[in-house]
Structures are given as C-alpha cells and as structure tokens.
Design a protein around this nucleic acid. Structure first.
Lengths: 234, 234
DNA sequence: ACTGCTATTTATAACTT
DNA sequence: TAAGTTATAAATAGCAG
C-alpha cells in the first residue's frame, strides 16, 4: 500500500528503514489498539528496534499483567501456538520469498483445556467486576461509604482529576466545533485523541488508585490478602 | 476499511466479534511479521482472546528471548515509554505460584454440562461488565467516547455534582475529627479508624499515587521498607 | 531527520454462498 | 456456520517542503 508494491525483505537503506519503522510501528500499535477494543482482547506488543530502542503497547491491562498471564500458562498451552505457522503460510501464499525463519511447533490437542480456559475466564470476569464495582462506588456510591478523612480526600482528588480531564476534552471539542474553516476531507486523519496511538491510550488518571493498587499487588509488593482488603476499603 | 467505517468500540454481537477477531488477528500478525523483516526488529506479540485463547507471534527470535530481554532491561529503560517497573522477580514468582495452584484437576472429562454452565456464567458476567462499563464511562470516560459538546457538558455536570457531594461530606468529617482542638483550615488531619495516628502526617505531594502510597503505608498495609522503595520508584 | 501529501496497495466489514 | 467475494476504508511508499 504505497506507490509501489514492497517486497517483504530487509530494507537496506538505513534512512528508509528508519522511516518505515517509525510509520509501520505506529500503524501496528494502532491496529493492536483497535483489536484490543473491538474484540475485547488483551494484547501485548513489544518491539526492539535494531538500535535497541524499546516500543511497546498494551491495552487496558498492563504489559506486566499480560506477560504474567503468559508465563503462567502451562507449558503445553504455551507451546501450542497456532500462529507460529503464520509466516510460513503467509509466505507460501503470498509469494515465493524463501525464508526459513520459523520452526513449526504444534502438537495435536488436549481435550479439556477449554474447561480450564472457561474457569480462568470466569475468574477474570469476577475480578474485573469487583474492580469495576469499586470504581463505581467512588462515583455512584453514597457518601456513607466514605468514613475517613483520608478516603474523602482521596475521592476528592480523583474527582478533581477526572473533572480536569473532562474539561480539557470539552475545550478541545469546543475548539473543534468553533474553528472557522474545517477542512472537510482529511483522509487518513484520526480524531485528535487517537493520535495518542503513541501514548497507548489507556488509563486516564482517574483510576490511578486502582492501577496503583494493581501495580503493587501484581508485583508482589503487597502482603497476601492486602489487595483485596484495600479494594474493599476503597 | 470495509464497506462502512467502523467505530472503534467493543463489538457487541458475539459472532461478529469472533469473526472480526479472527481476521484482524491475522492482519496484525502479518503486519508484525512484515515490520520485523522490513526493519529488522524484534517483535513479540501476545494476545488473549476473551475466551482465554492465546495467540502469539514473534519474529526470528523466540518469544521467550524477547520477553527475557524486556524484563532484563534496566528499570528506567523499561519505564520510559509508559510502563511501570516490573521487577524480574515478579515473573518468576508468578510462575512458581501458578505451578502450585493449578495442579488439582483430577476429574476426567464429563464436562459438557459443566461447560455449558460456565459458558452461561461467562455470558452473565459479560453482560454485567458491559453494563458497568457503560456506567463507568460516564465518569471515567474515556475521552474518545465523548464526541459532542453536549456529552462533555453532561459529564462535567455529573462530576461537579459528585465532587460537591464529596467535599460536603469531607467537611463534615473534618469537623468531626478536629473538634477536640483548634480547627485548621486545610490539611493536617488524623487517620480515624485505622488507628495509626503517627504514620501519616507529611505528604505535601499532590500526586495521587503518592497520596495513596502514604495511605497504604500509614495503615500498616505495606511490608517494611516497601513505601520508601516505592517512593523512590515514583 | 520531521512533517504533510497523494497514488497505490492492503486490510477488512458486509455480503454472498 | 464457515469460507469466499466485493466495495470501501486504511495504511503507507515515495516525494516534496
């Protein structure tokens, strides 16, 4: 999709390679983001440029969470990747560019991994629900939930933060609608906030508490049971 | 890029979501592959479908290699792009825990009825989650959801209202707790029920995370030394 | 190197079988 | 319901400033 059809092989010209990397990297992250939202999937994307620079993306969950989930998989699950075959298949299908980079790894099947998958899924759902309930209480919950000054203070800060965000966004919208000559046809243009492909969207600071708690918890920085206790208290 | 322009939001229709996932997943992997070849970069891509199924891609290097490289990065490098620190320990720890907990699956497969049960439960959870997400968006929204001035205005009003409530409540609490002495106008309050009067005191930081950290610490909810470690990291 | 701009190629949503 | 087709939206290669 450019002026010419591009062979899928290493771009030798350094400058060109750099530019292409920059463009395609953004494209890839955008796609990953869209997939994660559209299909409600967790996506983690890690890239190392030749110069060693790191780029990464993750959807609503943190990279760490997803990696953790990955390393937690039983060995056989992890090995049974149906996609490693993709490059081979794609190549064979697309054109005859010999490239023997991947090693076919696939084992037949397990019969009841689905059960475990479902269980895992349910656990995920439950935790997600608990999490959301907590966040909702902050907003919808009546004040009787707030019994300490610290809590009150905390909620106040979150609300202020969120309000700030909304006002900022509102301002952007205002400018957008009142701008004199809006060029009606800007083809590949995203709405401004989507330009944040780079910033990986996610977390507005409104749920910092939650994220921070999860961060602590997921990194083993909290004593056992602490996280749930805290969630309850919040 | 289809017959119509698609909003980037969760596809509610299950069949559709599944189909889209399948297509876009392939597209994403293909893009990742192309990027890795064209620009000679290491790419690791991990996806968990809602049903818990794993998809992944990596270029010429194995996923493990790339993940290893990632977790071995110095913290400041890793955090640069947006992500929080991920102690290397955590990965290993997660793995160990999983091995311990995911063993007892002794029952053979007579799973069909149970499977359906699980599916039903998942469906229930999902719908509940969708509902809560909707409510939550009103508050935390995800600026990309707010596309009109009217919406923004609405959200602003709700937040203002809630904030007012919280401040009122906070005032009440303040009066309640400062009654035995001269009332300071702003900060400087006691942690009420949690007990540790002596833990809190300072702060001065406006960062919510820091605030929350203090909250945890002052309530004795962090392991010894954790708080200072975390403060350093923030 | 850092935009922005087309001309093209690709990806894909809805349709079809 | 899954696989294939088509019309359309998106991504992007090569340029230009």
């Amino acid at each position: 999709m450019g002026r010419v059809k591009l062979q899928i092989k290493r771009i030798e010209n350094t400058t060109n390679r750099q530019v292409t990397f920059s463009k395609r990297r953004n494209g890839l992250i955008k796609k990953a983001y869209e997939l994660s939202v559209l299909c409600d999937v967790d996506v983690a994307l890690i890239m190392f440029s030749p110069s060693g620079r790191l780029s990464l993306f993750s959807g609503n969950k943190s990279i760490e969470e997803i990696l953790g989930r990955y390393v937690n998989l039983p060995e056989h699950e992890r090995g049974r990747l149906r996609n490693k075959e993709f490059p081979i298949k794609a190549l064979g299908k697309l054109r005859d560019e010999a490239d023997q980079t991947s090693q076919p790894t696939s084992s037949p099947e397990c019969i009841n991994p689905q059960l475990e998958e479902f269980q895992q899924e349910i656990i995920n759902c439950k935790s997600r629900i608990a999490n959301m309930e907590k966040r909702l209480r902050i907003f919808e919950g009546d004040a009787s939930e707030i019994t300490t000054l610290i809590q009150a203070d905390y909620h106040e800060q979150i609300l202020e933060e969120t309000l700030k965000q909304v006002r900022l966004h509102k301002q952007v919208l205002e400018e957008k609608f009142t701008s004199p000559g809006p060029p009606p046809t800007t083809k590949g243009k995203l709405p401004p906030e989507a330009g944040d492909v780079n910033g990986f969207v996610t977390t507005s600071s409104s749920s910092i508490s939650n994220h921070f708690l999860n961060f602590l918890d997921s990194n083993g920085l909290l004593p056992p049971g602490c996280a749930s206790k805290m969630r309850h208290q919040l």
